[in-house]
Amino acid sequence: MNTRRNPKDTAKRGAKPDSAAKSQPKQGFKGSHKPNSRPADKVKAPLPAKLYPVTEPAELLPFLLTHITGRGRNAIKSILSRGQVSVNGKTTTQHNLQLHPGQVVAIDQEKQAPPEELIGLTIVHEDEDLIVIQKDAGLLSIATAEETELTAYYQLMEHVRLANPKNRIFVVHRLDRDTSGLMMFAKSERIQQLLQTTWKETVKERSYVALVEGAVKHPEGTISSWLKETSTLKMYSSPHEGDGQHAVTHYKLIQMNRHFSLLEVHLETGRKNQIRVHMSDLGHPIAGDKKYGAETKTVGRLGLHARVLSFTHPATGELMIFESPIPKTFLKYTAPSSSN
Rank of each mutant, 00 (worst) to 15 (best):
Q192W: 09
E205A: 11
T198Y: 09
N167K: 10
Q192N: 07
T197S: 15
E189F: 11
R168E: 15
S207H: 04
S207C: 09
A210S: 08
R174Q: 03
Q196L: 04
W199H: 11
R168T: 11
T179P: 01
K187L: 03
L195S: 09
L194W: 11
G181Y: 06
V203D: 09
D178W: 06
I191V: 15
M184R: 08
K200S: 14
V172G: 05
L182H: 01
V212S: 10
R174V: 01
S180E: 03
Q196N: 12
F170K: 00
Y208D: 06
T198Q: 14
N167W: 02
V203Q: 11
D176P: 02
D176G: 02
R190S: 13
F170R: 08
W199E: 09
G181C: 07
S180F: 00
W199A: 10
Q193Y: 12
V212K: 09
M183V: 00
S207Q: 07
K204M: 12
M183S: 06
L194Y: 10
V171H: 14
E213I: 14
E205V: 03
A210W: 08
S207G: 04
E201D: 15
T197K: 15
S180W: 03
L195C: 13
R168S: 13
K187V: 02
Q193K: 15
V172R: 02
Q192V: 12
T202I: 14
N167P: 00
E189C: 10
L175N: 00
S207A: 11
V209N: 11
E205D: 13
I191K: 09
L195H: 08
T198W: 04
E205F: 07
D178G: 02
L182C: 07
G181S: 04
N167C: 05
A186L: 10
Y208N: 03
V171I: 14
K187C: 07
S188W: 11
R174I: 02
F170Q: 04
R168P: 00
V172P: 02
L194I: 00
T197V: 09
M184P: 05
S180M: 02
Q196P: 06
V209F: 13
D178V: 01
V212G: 07
V203R: 11
R190V: 12
L175D: 02
E189L: 12
L182N: 01
V171F: 11
L194Q: 14
R168K: 15
E189K: 14
L211E: 08
G181N: 01
T202N: 13
V172F: 06
N167H: 14
K204R: 15
D176I: 03
D178A: 09
V172Q: 03
Q196F: 04
F185E: 02
R206F: 04
R177I: 02
F170L: 05
M184S: 05
R177D: 01
T202K: 15
K187S: 04
V212L: 11
Y208A: 06
K204T: 14
I169M: 05
E213G: 12
L211G: 05
K200G: 09
E189W: 01
Y208L: 01
R177T: 00
T179Q: 04
D176V: 02
T198N: 15
M183R: 06
R177C: 00
